[in-house]
Design a protein around this nucleic acid. Structure first.
Lengths: 155, 155
DNA sequence: TTGGTTGGTTTGCATTCCCAATCACTTATA
DNA sequence: TATAAGTGATTGGGAATGCAAACCAACCAA
């Protein structure tokens, strides 16, 4: 498939919007001592309880990189490490309430920060843009089905 | 302006596509020992000859961060430092032919890497997507007008 | 039980990034 | 013109990110 003009101009837009979004996330994260990667991990954990290797594979990072990152976040009380019942070697990572709250706040702020940009589109254009973006996105990690009750304890 | 559903879903798409694009750029850059920021700087330099502070302001980074980054790229022959005629304190950064070629290669590879994603859209959808993205983008640094002749040498 | 594999952590190193201090040049003021 | 203040860039210190290699622990097959 030979890339044509429509691809050129699209790549340019995607790359530039990516830098812009990352800039916003970096700045907002920094205000709360969260790196881009930490922010991303927390975002992923919102509805998943993956193992360290799943996380590493999905993020394209080395397991050792996650090790330190998870430790720091754990010390700050943003997430916890647990052992998988199925495989006692495996470490499952779970977000805490504090982590969840911080993540919510971060994404809320990101939304505000991007508002001047997204506000330049009409609501139906925003939907159309989101629709067009959708097919480009890599499917996320499957969500961990949460037990009927929120399962604060191990229940 | 109260964020509505269309904003939520759009932000989600933008953030995810940003992570995805950054992932691709990071990987491709790494294959040639270029960090995301170095790649970005080279991309900016393609048609500009900004001063260090312009670059820092545009990237939202500290000048000191750029200092080292520029030095390393300079040692690799990807760019050169020059003194501004107008202000002898100022350092202007200029891409070299080697840097330009490497940048071209990187973006070509990025295009290939993103092809499986962008290819999921029809050409007219790609154009439409690019069009919708456009209003969101921060205007880039103004290009440095190049002398009439491409000015390989100082002419 | 042994040997190989897989999941995570630790250690060491380069890079990125910020901040504070510094040097060099520019511009304003006396 | 001399001096002071301001601006542009670099340097050095410190934390975090990221990889690779070495390592331990648990799983799994023979």
């Amino acid at each position: 498939m030979v890339p044509d003009d429509s691809t050129d101009v699209l790549i340019d837009g995607l790359v530039r919007s990516a830098y812009q979004v990352m800039g916003v996330l970096t700045r907002i994260g920094a205000e709360h001592d969260l790196s881009l990667t930490q922010l991303r991990v927390l975002g992923i954990l919102r509805d998943r309880r993956p193992r360290v290797s799943d996380l590493a594979a999905f993020l394209g990072l080395d397991k050792s990189t996650l090790s330190g990152l998870i430790s720091r976040a754990e010390q700050r009380g943003l997430l916890t490490r647990g052992t998988s019942p199925e495989d006692r070697r495996a470490v499952v990572v779970e977000i805490t309430d504090a982590g969840r709250e911080l993540t919510r706040l971060m994404y809320e702020k990101a939304q505000e920060a991007l508002e001047p940009a997204t506000g330049r589109l009409e609501p139906e254009q925003r939907l159309r843009l989101a629709e067009l973006l959708e097919p480009l996105l890599t499917p996320p990690l499957p969500a961990t089905p949460r037990p009927a009750r929120p399962a604060r304890g191990t229940s």
